[in-house]
Each structure stands twice: as structure tokens, then as C-alpha cells.
Amino acid sequence: MSVDYKIELKKLVSALQVEAKSHHKNRDFLQLLPFNPEKQESYDLYTMNSPFSLTIIDYTPDAPYLFAFIGAETAFSIAVDTRQLSRLHKHDYFELFYILDGHLDIMIEGSHHRYESGEACLINCNARHVEEYRSAFLAVYLNFSPQYLSALTKHLFLDTQKDGLPWFLSQNIQADQKDRKDYIDFTPMPAPDEGISNGMEQLIYRIVSESKGKAPGYEDIVSGSLKRLLFHLQSPIEYTHSYVRLKAIREQNLFEDTVTYINLQKRKVSRSELADALNYNGDYISQIFYKQTGQTLADYIRNVCLREAASLLLNTDLSASAIIHRLGFENRTAFYRQFKKKYQVTLDEYRHNYRNF
């Protein structure tokens, strides 16, 4: 007879419940957690005082939901109002959540995501997110300090293929990656039976029960079970992976917006104008442009202007001086020199040689 680990997990969580009738009316219960919530202007920052902890949320709409926490020294469950944890936040630890039942709606850096039963997501320390609590779900959150996660996975993976879990860890665990806001999604492969999900649920139940019981040697059992869980998540036979680099996406969008703006203007554009138009620092725009192309922003703008000058010479009757003025260049001599360097002829010679072709 197979064991329903979701039901067993709910029983285990219920056994942790404490009498705290007033906690669901305010945020006092957060004082029980080994986290230090620091209120920033637009989000909360949670710092963890232990290498590993776990949280379980059993949410039902229109009612206080069950929130359970198990750490090195604290273990409890309590009925909580969703308003207590519905504020944008980030952590100084990695958070891996796994959906055991239902589906979870969550905003990650302004983008909506829905995770179904059997799916998981590992979020790095910098990505801001908030659960939306729309529909019923049961989820476990495994919280790793960067040092603990690094030690846990040091010799776990042989394959460091780009975009997989090992690559995600190598890119995000380093202390100097404070500007990265990455996460990786895990979606189970279609299977003829529920062996994979049931195996994951069994592992999660073991991690939770051992962490709760704290019998001698439990740390090794938890560590080994976490390694096994991460190994399963990385397996291409069991899961597909989607590594999302929010910084890379933003940089690509900024690069494309920069190119679009310059080509629409078809004239000399300054860094300060770009900064005002795109709402980014001018030096940062230049850095991203060079990173994407290997070409300086000034060189690209110059080439756009030279191509526009050539087009105007062929398609209008504007004089060379009028064209140079229209393109925003004050030093006509320098523009003449640049044009001849690119096309090997002067502006007048270019019009004479190519206008009738």
C-alpha cells in the first residue's frame, strides 16, 4: 500500500501547531523566526541566522492558513492571515520552493508566474518576490545559506552544462554577484506513473520529519536527502530547466532600446540625451552597448550618422553643409574627414558618383 506523503506531511505540520490565538491578527509571530526582517522602502529583507531551515505553507482561500517553520532551534506551526506575508521581499539566502498540491501564483521582480503541483523554483538572494495567495496550495520552502548550499553541492554535480542547476549555482553563489537577480524553474517531465513526484514527496517528508525530530545524526540524513533532492531536480530525464537571468534580460532590453532610439533619431545623439530618454545612467548605457557589440557607443552613432548622410546625398538636394548641420555635427572638417575615411570619397564625389545608379 503506497503512502500519501502529502497527507503525512499535513499531519506532521498539524502536530507542530501552537496555541497562539492572537498571532494571526498581527506580525508578532515573525519574532519566533530566526530571520531578521528589515523594512526597506519598497520591500522587506530577510536574513537567516542558520545554515538551513524550512517553511511549509498550507493555504486555503478565505481563511487563516497554516504556516509551519522548522529551524535549527525552533519548530512551530500557526494559523496566519495572508496579509502578514503578502509584502514584497528578498532574502540573504537561497530559497527553493516545491509545490506539493494545488498551484502557487507568485510575482518575481514584477513578472507573474504560476507553479503547478510537482514544479519547483530556486531563487537567488537578490530577486524580490511575493506570493499572491489566489488559490489553495501546499508548498515546502527549503532555505539555504550560500555557504551551506555551496558545501552541499561541492562534489554533487559532474555536468556543468550551461543553463542547468550546477551552472546556476556557479553563477550565483559567489559573494560578488549582488547585482544578479536569477532563478531557475524545474518542470517535471511527462511520466507514465507518479513515481517521480511520489519520490520527491518522500524525500521532502524525510527532510521535514528528520529536521523536526532532531534525533542523533539527523543532520547527515537531512544533508543526504537534500543532495538527493537536488540531484533529482538536475536530472534531464526527470525535469526540464529554465534558467532566468533577469539582469541579462534587462541588459538586452536596454541594448535594443538604445539601438532603436539612435536609429530613429538618425542624427548625433549624446549620452545625456540617451540617459534622459531611456532613464538609465549614460555611462551604464555605454558599458552595456560595448558588452553587447564590442563597439563603442560613439562609433555606432557616428556610423549611423555617416549612413544617413550617404542616404541624404542620394535622395535629397540638401547641400553637404545642410546635411552636416541636420545630423548635429558642428565641426564640418571632422565630419568630412570621417566620411571620406568610411566611403573613400568626399560628400560631393559620393553624390556625383552614385546618385544616378
Results as ranks from 00 to 15, higher is better:
residue 270 S to V: 07
residue 68 A to Q: 02
residue 207 I to G: 04
residue 140 V to G: 01
residue 201 E to W: 06
residue 235 S to W: 02
residue 104 L to N: 05
residue 321 S to P: 01
residue 40 Q to G: 06
residue 208 V to D: 03
residue 103 H to K: 12
residue 318 L to E: 14
residue 78 I to R: 04
residue 135 S to G: 03
residue 335 F to Q: 11
residue 252 Q to K: 15
residue 318 L to M: 14
residue 19 E to W: 03
residue 328 G to A: 08
residue 161 Q to C: 07
residue 237 I to M: 12
residue 66 L to D: 06
residue 51 P to K: 08
residue 201 E to R: 13
residue 296 T to A: 07
residue 113 H to I: 08
residue 3 V to L: 07
residue 165 L to I: 04
residue 206 R to E: 08
residue 4 D to I: 02
residue 161 Q to M: 09
residue 174 Q to R: 12
residue 74 T to W: 08
residue 55 T to E: 14
residue 253 N to L: 14
residue 115 Y to I: 03
residue 190 P to F: 06
residue 335 F to L: 13
residue 285 I to N: 05
residue 160 T to V: 10
residue 21 K to G: 10
residue 30 L to Y: 03
residue 273 E to D: 09
residue 93 Y to H: 13
residue 70 I to A: 12
residue 293 T to Q: 11
residue 254 L to V: 13
residue 70 I to E: 04
residue 299 D to Q: 14
residue 96 L to G: 00
residue 165 L to H: 05
residue 242 S to M: 10
residue 30 L to M: 15
residue 59 Y to L: 01
residue 299 D to N: 14
residue 117 S to T: 11
residue 198 N to E: 13
residue 242 S to H: 14
residue 350 Y to W: 03
residue 314 L to N: 06
residue 202 Q to A: 13
residue 137 F to L: 08
residue 313 L to R: 08
residue 6 K to G: 04
residue 331 N to I: 03
residue 123 I to G: 02
residue 118 G to T: 05
residue 42 S to V: 04
residue 229 L to N: 09
residue 118 G to C: 04
residue 126 N to Y: 12
residue 166 P to W: 15
residue 295 Q to I: 15
residue 296 T to Q: 10
residue 165 L to N: 02
residue 303 N to K: 13
residue 6 K to C: 01
residue 333 T to M: 09
residue 297 L to V: 09
residue 143 N to G: 01
residue 241 H to G: 04
residue 259 V to W: 01
residue 56 I to C: 09
residue 209 S to W: 02
residue 242 S to P: 00
residue 137 F to M: 07
residue 278 L to H: 01
residue 167 W to G: 04
residue 321 S to G: 05
residue 15 A to F: 05
residue 89 H to R: 07
residue 177 Q to V: 03
residue 231 F to M: 12
residue 192 P to G: 10
residue 201 E to Y: 09
residue 251 E to S: 10
residue 54 L to A: 04
residue 226 L to Q: 08
residue 294 G to P: 06
residue 176 D to G: 03
residue 264 L to H: 15
residue 69 F to S: 07
residue 240 T to H: 10
residue 332 R to F: 09
residue 38 E to H: 07
residue 85 L to S: 06
residue 269 V to D: 12
residue 311 S to P: 00
residue 291 K to W: 01
residue 309 A to S: 05
residue 81 D to K: 01
residue 40 Q to H: 13
residue 100 L to G: 04
residue 253 N to V: 06
residue 41 E to K: 12
residue 14 S to T: 05
residue 264 L to K: 15
residue 100 L to I: 08
residue 229 L to Q: 09
residue 1 M to K: 03
residue 101 D to W: 00
residue 121 C to M: 10
residue 261 Y to W: 13
residue 125 C to Y: 05
residue 59 Y to Q: 00
residue 311 S to Y: 07
residue 229 L to T: 07
residue 295 Q to Y: 13
residue 157 F to N: 11
residue 231 F to D: 15
residue 246 L to V: 05
residue 216 P to Y: 02
residue 337 R to K: 15
residue 73 E to P: 00
residue 117 S to N: 07
residue 161 Q to D: 11
residue 82 T to A: 08
residue 52 F to C: 14
residue 155 H to C: 06
residue 10 K to G: 02
residue 51 P to F: 07
residue 124 N to M: 09
residue 215 A to S: 11
residue 59 Y to E: 00
residue 158 L to D: 14
residue 304 V to Y: 00
residue 99 I to H: 04
residue 35 F to P: 03
residue 227 K to F: 01
residue 262 I to P: 00
residue 31 Q to Y: 11
residue 218 Y to N: 00
residue 227 K to P: 02
residue 258 T to Q: 13
residue 14 S to A: 13
residue 74 T to C: 12
residue 218 Y to C: 00
residue 286 S to V: 07
residue 124 N to T: 08
residue 323 I to N: 05
